[in-house]
Amino acid sequence: MFSAFKKSIPQISIFHNSSSPPSAKALAALRSATSSPYPPGKSNARPLKFNLEVLENTPPTPDQIRTILTYLPPARSADDPSDPHHVARLISTHPSAPSLPDRPSSAEGLSRLAQSNPHAVRWPIIVDWTNGKAVAGDSEGVKDILEHLRKRRDGEIKEEADHKPTGWFS
């Protein structure tokens, strides 16, 4: 009866570095999805509805880093640390990034590194806080987040928390 109260507009943040081409491309895709038909080739499609927070040249806080690491998809390559929540997944391969023995091993260390050397971070970091999804350093990864939102909008994915009365009222 009151299912409309359960729906919320997804909250998406992009930790954006304006000097990073992948970050600029991802930000453009997010903005386009809220103002133009999505997917782009379908003229009868509606734009996606989500709140977009752009955090320009601002790294995530240590608490945000810990959450983001749990939202990232599982590591794909064998050279990644065995811990899927390891902060090294957010460190770039830029020449100014620290080498393996000098890399931070905590969210606090990564946050300090990002503040002192923005090139050491994989930009952009895009987080869908509502659906628990994140991508880092990949402008193509934004498509996965947008496609998930489109599937929800179009009813291809059902709400996980469908509350149906049980017991007395059912």
Results as ranks from 00 to 15, higher is better:
I12E: 02
S13F: 03
F15D: 01
H16N: 10
N17F: 13
S18W: 06
A26E: 07
A28H: 11
A28R: 12
R31F: 04
R31S: 15
R31M: 13
S32R: 15
T34E: 05
S35K: 14
S36C: 11
S36Q: 14
P37K: 07
P39I: 12
S43R: 12
L52Q: 03
L52Y: 05
L55K: 15
P60N: 07
I68F: 03
I68Y: 00
P74M: 04
P74D: 11
S77Y: 05
A78I: 09
D79F: 12
D83W: 06
D83F: 10
A88V: 00
L90E: 07
H94I: 00
A97W: 02
P98Q: 10
P98T: 13
S99H: 14
S99E: 13
L100W: 06
L100E: 13
L100G: 03
P101Y: 07
S105P: 00
S106H: 04
S106I: 09
A114M: 09
A114W: 05
S116R: 15
N117Y: 01
H119P: 09
A120Q: 00
W123N: 03
P124F: 04
I126H: 05
D128Q: 09
T130H: 10
K133D: 10
A134R: 05
A134F: 00
A134Y: 01
D138W: 08
S139V: 04
E140I: 09
I145G: 10
L146A: 07
R150E: 15
K151D: 15
K151H: 10
R152F: 06
